[in-house]
């Protein structure tokens, strides 16, 4: 029996060691890090901005990527973020309704465009072309993706939605992440997708077709300061950096985004 007890003791000890190891591993989640929930579409410039900011001011930044809606769900559940960078204002509006937001600032202007293979082989030029019977389309889910909602509204206004939706259900696909839509065109699984202009800018083999109906509606990538922030002062300072025309906004522009106007960052 002694023997059995000893063994169980050893096993429990091993379990304890594993738990200790897990605790020791997660050093990055230290209390003084700024936690930013970041829309997946802004991953590239935000990663660079966070890196430069960490280097310059020694503040550690933890970026958590996801679809804006998914991040919003997480915010509602956990209440652990300092900042929330959302793909458009509607998410910030919803977070406001749940009383999670202190303040908000626009970062990037974006418009919907039609993404096609370079050279536009299928000659897509007008909104009406989207209902062509030979076309395979990839659209965002209207309830899950902000680009999907906007696409639905614009096509409804042009009285094309019912027809286009049917054609997507028959030959195309609805997906919840905007980058997946662009990937579909790139792989060749569909012919066209409706995505944000700044997404196409990140794909060298895709081309953006601008349409007046889409251009008329400008949405904004927006950053919000959250109530749950443990260090609002540090969070505000990062927002200033992010929305400075010679710092964060410049890096967004360099990544192909249409950054809003901002003021200069002065040391």
């Amino acid at each position: 029996m002694q023997f059995g007890l000893k063994k169980i003791g050893m096993i429990s000890g091993a379990v304890g060691l594993v738990l200790l190891g897990l605790l020791g591993l997660d050093r990055s989640g230290s209390a003084d890090a700024l936690v930013i929930y970041c829309a997946a579409g802004a991953q590239r410039p935000m990663a660079r901005i966070a890196r430069e900011y960490e280097k310059a001011y020694g503040v550690s930044i933890q970026l958590q990527y996801g679809g804006s809606g998914t991040l919003l769900s997480n915010l509602k559940l956990t209440d652990r973020a300092d900042l929330f960078l959302a793909a458009d204002r509607s998410y910030i509006e919803r977070a406001r309704n749940w009383n999670l937001v202190v303040d908000e600032f626009p970062v990037v202007n974006q418009r919907a465009v039609v993404a096609v293979q370079k050279g536009n082989p299928l000659q897509i030029h007008f909104l009406e072309d989207l209902r062509r019977p030979d076309l395979r389309l990839s659209l965002g889910n209207p309830d899950a993706a902000s680009i999907g909602k906007l696409t639905q509204i614009i096509l409804q206004e042009a009285n094309l939605w019912t027809e286009v939706r049917k054609s997507v259900q028959r030959r195309g696909v609805f997906k919840p992440m905007v980058t997946d839509l662009a990937n579909d065109v790139r792989i060749g699984a569909v012919d066209v997708a409706v995505v944000w202009d700044n997404v196409v800018a990140q794909y060298p083999d895709l081309e953006a077709v601008h349409m007046p109906e889409f251009d008329a509606r400008v949405e904004q990538i927006t950053v919000a300061l959250m109530k749950s922030s443990t260090d609002p002062q540090a969070a505000r300072r990062f927002i200033l950096y992010l929305t400075a025309s010679n710092r964060g906004l410049l890096m967004f522009s360099e990544a192909g985004y249409d950054a809003v106007d901002g003021v200069q960052w002065v040391e």
Binding site: G69, T70, S73, K76, L77, S138, D143, A144, V173, P176
Partner: peptide, 24 residues
């Protein structure tokens, strides 16, 4: 398969879609 409602939506897709509109 995508997440086309009434076509390629299976139950795990539904969970994900509900999550992404904040409907926990």
């Amino acid at each position: 398969s995508g997440a086309t409602r009434m076509r390629t939506e299976v139950l795990p897709t539904s969970v994900f879609l509900e999550m992404s509109i904040g409907n926990i």
